[in-house]
Design a protein around this nucleic acid. Structure first.
Length: 509
RNA sequence: GGGCGCGUAGCUCAACGGCAGAGCAGUGGCCUUUUAAGCCAUUGGUUGAGAGUUCGAAUCUCUCCGCGCUCACCA
């Protein structure tokens, strides 16, 4: 049983009183003729058609949550909020009598849901309001909402008072956050619009949306630690997927030429402003395309999505104007690293030599790291922070890209690119390796480069190799962090702000 | 996991070694066009939890819990 606060006890007592009075605080059905938005526009329409000086007669039944009350003795003003916005209710002695005005003031609280019917009108200050003739409670709120009061200044700017701001509380009690912070609702509408726009873009281009297993007997497709679980009846360990890649590429073997999936990945790793243990990923695979074609499709897709969601291919992110209009800047990764760090990775074909160069540049280098990992280090240390405008970095070292195809004539480099925006990685793509014998070698190499107990090593996926042996068309593959794209399109610094229920350590309750 | 910071009323915050406070919300009263309505009165606290130092701890120290920033980790 919860410990009730003094405020909650008062409200519980009101519920008790209502029931004793034969008044049901949680009735089963509600009625509504207009949303608050529809009511205002219906009234404004009617005003235009009615003769000057003649207020129109528009009746409405509205529902919503009480967000503010201003009792003034013989009349009371209240604002209710529904899914479309706010509208003012006007309770007046002349219409409903003192008793009904008092009943509202005594039994209703902020946060309660109410149904009110009456006539729309303008108050003296010109606000379209519902002059209430009848009302009833739809649902009593026991706990007070975390207060949020808006003050509209003369110049139209809205000042928030007593808003719910604590990031922990906001994330743990997202329902309360959503209830009092309308901009949070907008963020998640925008998130839905982003996902919808991605789907439309790919659907229009002949990509088939598919669903592949989340619960897998073997994980793969990325270098990440998986969550492990267990199937009791089969007595079999299973993994939550860390990527969709290996299953989607099996579908190319099956002659599905263009496939995509939008869904959840799970990685058992650190949590940060850009990492959540589960996150939403988009992957697509495109037969007969290479990474250059994927690059072009990517910039078109992101620009189109941005335009559809925000109305413009440009967006302001954390104070910087980002422009997704194609073509994006393209930069060979080795050139970018050379420019920003002064280290020419091509001049250091092995790990020891590269490590020495890094130490000479005054940075610490992991003595156990492979050449690929050292390059990855240079990338994040020097180059990444400089990549603010959308940029494709291309051509990656082979040994950190076990599923990508080598560049013709350059066995150390694979045809891979990553899209960077605002200093972080947004997407990752390559020309897919479709040679089953080469792929088997890569799995074996990865097995050697990592300790046997390092869960980041790519386990050998024999069924995947069997699929590839049936013949896999040459293809380009692509992955994009949907949460990060939503961050960019909603100007949010933290991934937690674009997840309804981000991962939190188990709390006190 | 390391470093730094934060945790005080339902919400937002003050008090920084000397009686734990304000605004909002709540409760009672006044008020027939308000909109953070106003005015008068008033309730509300194990200061995240525990231990220690001290005549005295919200304040200083330690441990723990949670959150934020940051580093590490991370395709």
């Amino acid at each position: 049983m919860p410990e009730y606060t003094s405020l909650e006890k008062i409200r519980l007592a009101k519920i008790e009183t209502l029931r004793q009075e034969g008044y049901e605080p949680y009735p089963t059905r509600a009625e509504r003729t207009h949303t608050s938005l529809e009511a205002v526009s219906a009234f404004e329409q009617a005003e235009k058609q009615s003769p000057a000086g003649q207020p129109p007669e528009v009746k409405a039944t509205l529902v919503g949550r009480i967000r503010a009350t201003r009792p003034m003795g013989k009349l009371t003003f209240a604002h209710i909020e529904d899914g479309t916005g706010r509208i003012q209710l006007f309770f007046r002695l002349n219409e409903i009598g003192q008793e009904r005005v008092d009943f509202f003031n005594q039994r209703f609280d902020l946060g309660d849901f109410i149904q009110a019917s009456g006539t729309l009108m303008r108050t003296r200050t010109g606000e379209v309001s519902l002059l209430v003739h009848d009302y009833k409670m739809l649902a009593k709120a026991v706990s007070p909402l975390p207060a949020a009061k808006d003050e509209t200044l003369e110049d139209g700017t809205v000042v928030r008072h007593a808003a719910l701001e604590d990031p922990e509380l906001r994330a743990r009690q997202r329902y309360a956050d959503l209830a009092v912070n309308p901009d949070v609702r907008d963020t998640f509408r925008r998130r839905a619009a982003t996902v919808r726009a991605l789907r439309e873009f790919l659907d229009e281009r002949g990509f088939l949306e598919v669903e592949t297993p989340i619960l897998q007997p073997l994980y793969g497709g990325a270098a990440a630690k998986p969550f492990v679980t267990h199937h009791n009846e089969l007595d079999q360990d299973m993994y939550l997927r860390i990527s969709f890649e290996l299953y989607l590429k099996r579908l190319l073997v099956g002659n599905l030429e263009r496939v995509y999936e939008i869904g959840r990945d799970f990685r058992n790793e650190g949590v940060s402003f850009k990492h959540n243990p589960e996150f939403t990923q988009l992957e697509f695979y495109w037969a007969y395309a290479d990474y250059l074609q994927v690059m072009e499709l990517t910039e078109q897709m992101v620009a189109a999505v941005c335009r559809q969601v925000t109305g413009s291919p440009q967006v302001t992110y954390q104070g910087q104007l980002l422009d997704f209009t194609p073509p994006w800047q393209r930069m060979a990764m080795c050139d970018g690293i050379l420019e920003t760090s002064g280290i020419d990775i091509d001049a250091h074909p092995n790990a020891d030599s590269l490590r020495e160069a890094i130490v000479r540049a005054g940075k610490q280098a992991d003595p156990a790291a492979t050449r690929g990992k050292l390059i990855d280090f240079l990338l994040s240390e020097f180059l990444e922070p400089t990549l603010v405008q959308p940029t494709f970095l291309y051509d990656y070292p082979r040994d950190i890209s076990p599923l990508a195809k080598s560049k013709p004539g350059d066995p150390l480099t694979v045809e891979r690119f990553e899209g960077y925006v605002s200093g972080f990685e947004l997407c990752n793509a390559f020309t897919e390796l479709n040679d089953p014998l080469d792929q088997e070698q890569r799995f074996l190499e990865m097995g050697r480069d990592y300790d046997a107990d390092d869960e980041q090593q790519h386990p050998m996926d024999k069924d995947y190799l069997r699929a590839m042996r049936y013949g896999m068309p040459p293809c380009g593959g692509f992955g994009l962090g949907v949460d990060r794209l939503v961050m960019l399109l909603t100007d949010k610094h933290s991934i937690r702000e674009v997840l309804l229920f981000p991962h939190m350590r188990t709390g006190e309750d």
